[in-house]
Write a protein that binds this DNA or RNA. Structure first.
Lengths: 205, 205
DNA sequence: GCGTGTGAAACAATTCACAGCG
DNA sequence: CGCTGTGAATTGTTTCACACGC
């Protein structure tokens, strides 16, 4: 499997291809062309073929792609073929929202612990978890061998928390704070900022 | 103001510049160079200058940018200089999460109505709003002159809801359903898919 | 014939580097 | 001198178009 020279943007598109394939597999569709999958996802057929070619040859000429086979291959590539445990830092409105969302949907991502720096929140129940103080972070991450974290803390605390997480060995984070985190090489970080997205829309209105 | 030939990607970066400027303004900083702002946001100095040059000349040579002035200009460009009312479709776990998030943070985006197709949810209270049936959608959008909507419905309902929204005159939507929406020219749609983002991270792990 | 996989071509975005001005 | 604004150069991405195999 390649690892260095696949453009980031290609990797970001794979989950959407996977969604399309899962959708089609659920409907019992056996085979799909790059053309059809592209229409579903909203990208060109050539782009799908080029993107997939970074990882191998998955199609049959004259036929297209076998839906379940390509789906499984993409899951392997994205490491979406297994469950992941993650921790949540920040037990405010957004944090509890995320817990509810992730628990309600039956995803392969499971929140196994929640932390907050505010003592008033410690012990508070969120679904079947209890909010813990930040001092417990290191122990939990190490004991449970956690790779992923969600940050739902205020912007001015986010960098500090990110540093703590990195120090404990977390290698991926989903950051909801409206700030760009500084993380070392080898740690991967994705930002989600709904307000920024809304501003990107209102530009056109 | 330009409107057609500004690359989409430039528009998507502006909100982050705005964040940096708001941060600096709150700290009383008067002036900032593209270099410093770029470090904060995580882009190159040249990129900031080039991006801003699509909209005008905002800096002073030898000095940099006056923080509050550039902030205000960006707010104008993004139409973030006023409040926006929006509606939410989908009152499930994710929907209530979003209501709590948007109400708790004091943003300039205000949810003024919540809709759901499930009769069991009608009348349910979410903060100070009551979930309404989809049949009320058109009336509310027209009466309140709504431009923006958030979609938090299951994937297989999303396209239908999007069509309804477009028909009622909504011109922008933030889509949390894991599906690419088909919308006509002139309607703007941003996708937010946390699971896709997590998959983009686990690729590297 | 149909649809993949892929170099080559076209296009787009980013970075460079410097003129110009405070 | 410092820093912006911007063409030119570079780098990155997407599309084209066709050889190949089912």
């Amino acid at each position: 499997m390649p690892s260095q020279d696949v453009p980031q943007i290609v990797i970001e598109r794979l989950p959407f291809y996977l969604r399309g394939l899962e959708h089609m597999a659920n409907r019992g569709q056996r085979v799909v062309s790059s053309q059809t999958l592209g229409e579903w996802v909203g990208v060109s057929a050539a782009q799908i073929r080029k993107d997939l070619s970074y990882f191998g040859e998955f199609g049959k000429q004259g036929l297209g792609y076998e839906v379940t086979y390509l789906r499984d291959q993409l899951r392997l590539i994205l490491h979406a073929d297994r469950d992941w445990r993650l921790i949540l830092v920040g037990a405010g409105a957004l944090g509890s929202a995320l817990v509810n969302y992730l628990v309600a949907g039956q995803w392969q991502y499971h929140i196994v612990a929640v932390f907050d720096s505010d003592p008033a929140k410690h012990g508070k129940r969120m679904r079947d978890l209890y909010v813990q103080p930040m001092s417990e972070l290191e122990g939990v991450v190490e004991a449970q061998d956690i790779d992923l974290a969600i940050l739902a803390v205020p912007a001015d605390a986010a960098q500090q928390v990110a540093d703590d997480l990195v120090r404990c060995g977390v290698r991926g984070m989903l950051n909801y704070a409206p700030i760009r985190l500084n993380v070392p090489q080898g740690v991967h970080c994705a930002e989600i900022d709904p307000i920024a997205r809304l501003q990107g829309i209102t530009y056109f209105l």
